Structure formats: C-alpha cells, structure tokens
Amino acid sequence: MRRLNYFMLKGARTEEDYRKVKNAIEELDGVFKVDYEMAAEVVGVDYDDETISKEQIKAVVDSLGYTLIV
C-alpha cells in the first residue's frame, strides 16, 4: 500500500546533507518521492510499504552517518 510518512532526521545540518539523504532514499525500489524541511529536521517519504519498509529506509540513511527516527 502506498504510504506517506514523515521522519525526523538527526545529524544533517546543511542543504547538501539533506540532498544526500534525499538522493539515497529516492534510489530505493518502492520509493515514489522524497521531500525535506530543514527547519523542522523532517524528511517526507512517499513509498510502497509492500516493496520497502520503514526499517529498510532507516538502514540506508543510518549507513550515511545520519539518524532517521521511524
């Protein structure tokens, strides 16, 4: 089922940090769209939860050195 979830992102401080996270998530199978709001430290992910889980998205972001709170 298609879902839109907002996750807190910790450790990202610059526009480049957020773009790196956005690009990494967008490359995952099952992800339709990724947006972010730096001021709120939030990343919005539109994805198919039958293809990819929140935990898989978190693992990719965490591997970049940031913390995604699911």
Score class of each variant (00 low, 15 high):
residue 1 M to S: 13
residue 1 M to V: 03
residue 1 M to G: 13
residue 1 M to D: 10
residue 2 R to G: 00
residue 3 R to N: 06
residue 3 R to V: 01
residue 3 R to T: 01
residue 4 L to Y: 12
residue 5 N to D: 08
residue 5 N to P: 00
residue 5 N to Q: 04
residue 5 N to A: 02
residue 6 Y to S: 09
residue 6 Y to F: 07
residue 6 Y to A: 07
residue 8 M to W: 11
residue 9 L to C: 06
residue 9 L to Q: 07
residue 9 L to H: 09
residue 11 G to V: 11
residue 11 G to A: 09
residue 12 A to L: 09
residue 13 R to K: 15
residue 13 R to H: 14
residue 14 T to A: 09
residue 14 T to K: 13
residue 14 T to I: 13
residue 16 E to G: 05
residue 16 E to V: 10
residue 16 E to T: 14
residue 17 D to G: 08
residue 18 Y to W: 12
residue 18 Y to H: 10
residue 18 Y to M: 09
residue 19 R to E: 15
residue 19 R to P: 07
residue 19 R to V: 12
residue 19 R to L: 15
residue 20 K to M: 09
residue 20 K to Y: 01
residue 21 V to F: 02
residue 21 V to M: 05
residue 22 K to M: 12
residue 22 K to I: 01
residue 23 N to V: 05
residue 23 N to F: 11
residue 23 N to L: 11
residue 24 A to E: 10
residue 26 E to L: 15
residue 26 E to M: 15
residue 26 E to V: 01
residue 26 E to C: 09
residue 27 E to H: 11
residue 27 E to M: 13
residue 27 E to K: 15
residue 28 L to H: 03
residue 28 L to P: 00
residue 29 D to S: 13
residue 31 V to E: 04
residue 31 V to I: 06
residue 31 V to S: 02
residue 31 V to A: 01
residue 33 K to A: 02
residue 36 Y to M: 04
residue 36 Y to A: 05
residue 37 E to T: 10
residue 37 E to F: 10
residue 39 A to L: 15
residue 39 A to Y: 14
residue 40 A to L: 14
residue 40 A to P: 02
residue 41 E to G: 09
residue 41 E to Y: 13
residue 42 V to F: 05
residue 42 V to N: 08
residue 43 V to Y: 09
residue 43 V to P: 04
residue 43 V to T: 08
residue 44 G to Y: 06
residue 45 V to Y: 11
residue 45 V to D: 08
residue 45 V to I: 12
residue 46 D to R: 10
residue 46 D to Y: 15
residue 46 D to I: 01
residue 47 Y to A: 05
residue 49 D to M: 10
residue 49 D to T: 07
residue 51 T to N: 07
residue 51 T to Q: 13
residue 52 I to P: 07
residue 52 I to L: 08
residue 52 I to T: 11
residue 53 S to V: 01
residue 53 S to T: 14
residue 54 K to D: 14
residue 55 E to P: 01
residue 55 E to N: 10
residue 55 E to L: 05
residue 56 Q to N: 15
residue 56 Q to C: 07
residue 57 I to Y: 12
residue 57 I to T: 12
residue 59 A to G: 06
residue 60 V to C: 03
residue 61 V to M: 03
residue 61 V to T: 04
residue 61 V to I: 08
residue 61 V to Q: 04
residue 62 D to L: 09
residue 63 S to W: 11
residue 63 S to A: 15
residue 65 G to Y: 12
residue 65 G to I: 11
residue 66 Y to G: 06
residue 66 Y to H: 07
residue 67 T to A: 07
residue 68 L to D: 00
residue 69 I to P: 00
residue 69 I to T: 08
residue 70 V to H: 00
residue 70 V to P: 05
residue 70 V to T: 05
